[in-house]
Amino acid sequence: MLLCLWTGPKLGKLLAIFPVMYLSGGSCVLLIIRGAGTMELFFKMIFRGEATIEDNPLAGAGWVLGFTCMAIALAQRPNLNSIAGFSLIGALTAIAYCTLIWALPISKGRPSGVSYNSQKEESGMSEMFDVLNAIGMIVLAFRGHNLVLEIQGTLPSSSKCPSKKLMWRGVTLSYIIIAICLFPIAIAGFWTYGNKIPSNGGMLTAFMQLHGHDTSRFAKGLVYLLVVINCLSSFQIYAMPVFDNLEFRYTCMKNKRCSWWVRTGFRLFFGGLAFFIAVAFPFLPSLAALIGGIALPLTLAYPCFMWISIKKPHQKGHGVMWCLNLGLGCLGMVLSVLLVVAAVWNLATKGLHANFFHPE
């Protein structure tokens, strides 16, 4: 990797592996917070008859612990190949609940008083940072690039059918599905609710606040259940790079394969750490744009630099592809810095409800 050539093998390896582990761990914590909160709302509605987002926007520590235990109990498979079923379930539930979230509001119609104007006047600088902040959220929504090389390493490869072809098809299909799920939510959500969509909670929160009273318990319960199942399934996928890295370190140090109890211990350790972070920083979803901006080089910069390092086209002269990859890689790094600055700016100007160790 080009980072190793520039900074040395040790620092280059650290710069390469840190964002992968950071994005995997951060995604798992976000899934725990979201899944635990949704699970609490689901059970409240089942056993009490009704639940709204306002009752408890984030789960308490007990619900976080319960969801984490369920996720770790399911995370005992040894590798990515063995969790193909989880991936399929996660994809199907994501398509299902995303479709429900935008189809139900359209069927109910727009509530009264919906406006498409900004709720407050902002300067040109603030508007520009809001746009960059939104890009950071989109980047996080399309996360999964930290898993690409991990998944490609499990695919069969030959000279006639290299794994990169299968991986390219899989990446293309997965991002098409993500776009099909998310863009209708954005379009239908803005058309239905306009500026009534809350800054924290998004489309699901707006739907439960504005249309929850005239929606059947079955429909709301189905949405909640699909979200919980999706979070449990997605946790297995995003946690696997962390598990593999821990097992790889153990194998290198001990020069032997991981036994089942060591593998279980690693999963319990990661689950405990993720639980601690979810309880200590329950406001982490508010930092989605910042997380996405920091992880952006994995998508827009590192692949370009890796291509230059592997192909070494500069040995044959600086051609078009060398200039293109170098330009895109540098642009990705600059865009990442801008997104981080925009996220920090928004946090500084709009504030952050930092309820440390106090999940509501």
Rank of each mutant, 00 (worst) to 15 (best):
L298P: 04
F207D: 04
W307P: 06
I277M: 03
N79C: 04
T251C: 10
V171K: 11
V337S: 07
T299F: 09
H358C: 11
T264I: 06
V227T: 09
G8V: 10
L339I: 10
P111H: 02
I89L: 15
K196N: 13
F129A: 06
G329I: 02
L347D: 01
Y302P: 06
E50Q: 03
I53M: 08
P57F: 09
W322S: 06
T38P: 01
A59D: 09
L328M: 10
G327N: 05
M137S: 13
G62N: 12
T99D: 04
S233E: 07
M253H: 14
E150W: 11
I176S: 09
S157Q: 12
M1L: 14
P359Y: 02
P297A: 09
A51T: 05
S286V: 01
S123D: 04
V337M: 09
T192I: 13
R48P: 00
L210H: 12
F357H: 08
T68F: 03
K44E: 05
P282S: 04
D214A: 10
I135H: 10
S118T: 08
S24A: 15
C330P: 00
A179E: 02
V279S: 00
W261I: 12
L182H: 09
G60L: 08
I53V: 15
H318K: 10
C252Q: 15
I180A: 15
R217G: 14
I95S: 07
A134V: 06
I277C: 03
A103C: 12
V334Y: 02
A16H: 09
M321N: 11
Y97F: 15
S163L: 11
L100W: 07
G265D: 05
M240H: 03
L65S: 11
K256A: 13
N81M: 04
G49V: 03
K164R: 15
S233H: 02
G319F: 03
